[in-house]
Amino acid sequence: MTLRSRVLILVSALAVLAGVAAASVLHASARADRRDQARPGGPRITSGRLALTGGGLRVVFRNMAWGPHRDELVSVPAADPSGPRTASGVKCLRFHAASGTGVCLRAVHGPVQDTYRAVILDARLRERAHYDVPGVPSRARVSPSGRFAAWTAFVGGDSYAGTAFSTRAAIVDTRTGRLTPSLEAYRIVKDGRPYRAADVNFWGVTFAADDRTFYATMATRGSTYLVRGDLRARTLTTLHANVECPSLSPDGTRIAYKKRVQGAPEDAPWHLYVLELRTGRETALAEPRSVDDQLVWRDARTLVYALPGDYGADLYTVPADGTGTAHRLTGAALSPAYVD
């Protein structure tokens, strides 16, 4: 047998072994995926069509369960949040939607490091536009009309719990494409006076129904504030201290948020509250655990939020008036949006 024949036989054998190894890995991965989805209490997930309008009231969220649909947007009926999930094939790290418009914050995997992108989606989850995000995605919101979308990213540090972090909050007009890359471009009015500081950070935008007013968190000199923004005047005005990740109620009268409380651990410092905008009255909610999330109003009476779970995050609900108790809504889920 010639040397050339031996080399060809060796190469062929190595190719066969590589193919067998790859098939074994894929088979084991598929078995693991099926096993994860078949765990007691685990969600049942099937591929299908997903739209942000029509089909009755549903919840769309990021699926956190391990398997072939990990990180995809999935949909379930609002009346059966733990029921079978329909997976869209669209992957997001953070998501929100309203009136047939969605915003999807996703990773773009590169050869050296990941970058991030905000993608504006239409009602059928098709990309309408995309924008670079300067850091790790954190929060996302769409205005009730669907005209405006906002997102927040960490550009330094990776947690709201401490003080060594920096954020960038952006707003885009989905109709015109006009982007405000950072709310730091807005004029700030603090305690009735113009305010400027190098350490200002903003995050957690939430929109009113008038396509002009929004609210957000401003941090400066070790304190946080609820600010009211004006999209036309490009101003931000402080309203209330110690407010983080605000979420405006459907009727525009209340803000749900997380508040730092004295005596809490440094890595779990928050309690959930609701603020009445007209009176400034705060109501503590019946969730005893620290929550690091921007809440979503399911309706005028109920709030939804994420807490750590076996797959990364689970969704919980709590009454917005301070009564009752918190309840687990569904597991392996993050970034919910209620669509109809």
Results as ranks from 00 to 15, higher is better:
residue 249 S to R: 01
residue 249 S to V: 03
residue 238 T to Q: 04
residue 239 L to W: 01
residue 223 S to M: 09
residue 190 K to D: 11
residue 253 T to E: 10
residue 219 A to T: 15
residue 256 A to Q: 10
residue 203 W to Q: 13
residue 266 E to C: 05
residue 235 T to R: 00
residue 240 H to A: 12
residue 226 L to I: 10
residue 215 Y to F: 13
residue 194 P to L: 05
residue 185 A to V: 10
residue 197 A to P: 03
residue 186 Y to M: 05
residue 226 L to N: 03
residue 209 A to W: 00
residue 265 P to I: 09
residue 262 Q to D: 15
residue 259 K to I: 04
residue 245 C to D: 15
residue 250 P to F: 05
residue 189 V to C: 02
residue 224 T to G: 10
residue 188 I to Y: 02
residue 185 A to R: 15
residue 192 G to Q: 07
residue 257 Y to L: 11
residue 213 T to C: 04
residue 255 I to C: 03
residue 222 G to H: 08
residue 231 L to N: 01
residue 225 Y to I: 01
residue 180 T to M: 11
residue 254 R to Q: 11
residue 250 P to N: 07
residue 240 H to F: 12
residue 185 A to M: 11
residue 214 F to P: 00
residue 228 R to Q: 10
residue 258 K to N: 13
residue 262 Q to P: 08
residue 182 S to I: 06
residue 232 R to Y: 06
residue 197 A to I: 09
residue 262 Q to E: 15
residue 224 T to N: 12
residue 199 D to I: 11
residue 230 D to R: 00
residue 238 T to Y: 03
residue 234 R to F: 05
residue 208 A to T: 07
residue 202 F to S: 04
residue 256 A to S: 14
residue 238 T to E: 02
residue 223 S to H: 10
residue 184 E to K: 15
residue 219 A to S: 14
residue 221 R to Y: 07
residue 195 Y to C: 02
residue 237 T to A: 01
residue 182 S to G: 15
residue 236 L to G: 00
residue 217 T to F: 06
residue 247 S to D: 08
residue 254 R to I: 04
residue 268 A to R: 13
residue 218 M to A: 08
residue 247 S to I: 03
residue 268 A to E: 12
residue 266 E to V: 15
residue 262 Q to C: 08
residue 262 Q to S: 15
residue 196 R to I: 09
residue 182 S to H: 12
residue 263 G to M: 11
residue 245 C to Q: 15
residue 206 T to K: 01
residue 256 A to G: 09
residue 214 F to W: 12
residue 208 A to M: 05
residue 265 P to S: 07
residue 181 P to M: 12
residue 202 F to M: 11
residue 212 R to T: 10
residue 201 N to R: 13
residue 240 H to Q: 14
residue 181 P to F: 11
residue 259 K to R: 15
residue 240 H to G: 05
residue 227 V to R: 00
residue 223 S to I: 04
residue 186 Y to C: 00
residue 233 A to G: 06
residue 195 Y to E: 04
residue 246 P to K: 07
residue 203 W to F: 15
residue 265 P to V: 09
residue 207 F to N: 01
residue 246 P to W: 02
residue 220 T to G: 07
residue 266 E to M: 11
residue 247 S to R: 08
residue 211 D to W: 04
residue 213 T to D: 01
residue 252 G to E: 03
residue 260 R to A: 12
residue 210 D to W: 10
residue 243 V to H: 04
residue 195 Y to R: 06
residue 235 T to G: 02
residue 211 D to A: 07
residue 193 R to N: 10
residue 234 R to P: 02
residue 185 A to C: 08
residue 191 D to C: 05
residue 198 A to I: 05
residue 263 G to D: 10
residue 205 V to A: 04
residue 250 P to S: 08
residue 234 R to C: 01
residue 202 F to P: 00
residue 212 R to G: 08
residue 232 R to E: 12
residue 189 V to S: 02
residue 254 R to Y: 02
residue 191 D to Y: 09
residue 191 D to W: 05
residue 212 R to F: 10
residue 257 Y to M: 09
residue 217 T to E: 10
residue 202 F to H: 14
residue 208 A to Y: 03
residue 260 R to V: 11
